[in-house]
Structure formats: structure tokens, C-alpha cells
Amino acid sequence: MLSVQSVTKRFGGLVAVDSASLDVAQGSIAGLIGPNGAGKTTLFTLVAGFEKPSSGTVSFAGQDVTALPAHERAALGIARTFQIVQPFAGLSVVENIAVGAYLRHPARADAQAKARAVADLVGLGGQLEQSAAALTVAGRKRLELARALATEPRLLLLDEVLAGLNPSEIRDMIPVIRNIRDRGVTILMVEHVMQAVMSLCEHIHVLAQGKIIAQGKPAEIASDPAVIEAYLGQGAAKRLQAKPAGGADA
């Protein structure tokens, strides 16, 4: 479905994404994890077409989309949410979602019907007429998700939709995300909430300092020394391994 081939993105002297490659299979939920500043959001902006890569290619459903602007990629079926939520603050919840729905439903009545259906799906059905600016953090995250879904994407890029939610809100959102996948939408999600990543994702890619340093099944990733070091610093894997045997001095 999605194929990123040795993509690099430089911001001046800073290499935010460094020759990263990854594939996401159709119908799967894949995770993209990595420490803060690893380049995850930047990689999303490259896939969604908000920035052009300095080198490398992005293909979607067998088509090279590297040169296409963001709105054309959305029309092809790539939708993204924003890590920093970007609601249309002056609009109501249903109007926000309708903007996404208009992509495939030019008539007002159809777009609004679609928007209502999507709102129900993500649990915003009771707040349709509320102003987007008045939503809680959890509500805004749901709105991000709903707007992207309303474009009827084939690939959904979720950038930390669980960040800032409390444990019970996270528990509510996990089945919502799984439900979206079960309806046939391929999902690539950036997430720091490991419990969610481990329970949702079938495949995980790990990005550190712009490079893909590991990929595989959640269980493999959790025990990969390179991943542990990326998160906890050099030598961490060894120390962790030594801990059970070595005793209390760590």
C-alpha cells in the first residue's frame, strides 16, 4: 500500500529523516515509534505531501506520488492527522468533519450525512453542534481523527492521537482505531503510548535520529537491543540484561 524508499529530509544543516525506508501492507496497522525528535512527524509530512523530500521516493498503491501536492495525495486516499491538533476553530464539530466529507461528496446534504456518520463512529455523535474551539483535548483528538476519516482514505496516518489522553480515554480510543482498520483502512500510527502500540500494531518501525534502526513484530521490537539503546541511551540494553543477574547495584 505504502512504500517509502530511502527518503531523506534536510532542514538546513539538520538531517531530520536520513535515508529511511519502510513498507506498510494493505489492511494492516503499522506503528512508527522512536524517541522525541527522531523525525517521525517529518516522515509523515513527507508521506502526506506537505514537504518534499530532499531525496528518495514515496509510492502509494503502486504509484509514485513524490511529486504530488498534499491535496492530490488526499484525493488518492492518503489522510493524516496533526500531532498539534488543527481544528477549524470557528466552526462546529459537524462543519469541521463536513470539510473532509466534501472531498468525495460534493452535495451539501450528502457531505453532512457522511459527517454525522463519521462523528458517531469516533464517538463525537453527541457534540455535533458544539464549537470545535470548546472541545476538550480528547474531543479535539477525536475530531482530528474524524475529519481525516471523512475523506474516506485508504491509508490513514495517525500522529500521536492518544497523546494527552488519560488512561480511560486511551482505553476508549483503542477499539475505535481497531474498528477503522476492520473497515478496510490501512493505518500507520506514530505513538508514544507503548501499551497501545503493542496491542494494536502488527508491525512496528523504529526511527531514531532520522534512521530506521529496527522493524518487526511488537515482541521482537520490545527485546531488540538497538531499540532499547535508542530509547534509554548507549549501554542500556546491556545494563538491563545484567540487572536480573547482577542484583541491586544498578
Partner: peptide
């Protein structure tokens, strides 16, 4: 309206 409120969000939604 979408362009007025938030251009980036509009682009993400295919505008």
C-alpha cells in the same frame, strides 16, 4: 471557510 480557518488542515483534507 476551511482556507480562512486553517490552510494546513484544509490541504490535509484534499482542498
Amino acid at each position: 471557510t476551511a482556507v480562512r480557518e486553517n490552510e494546513d488542515a484544509a490541504r490535509a483534507l484534499g482542498v
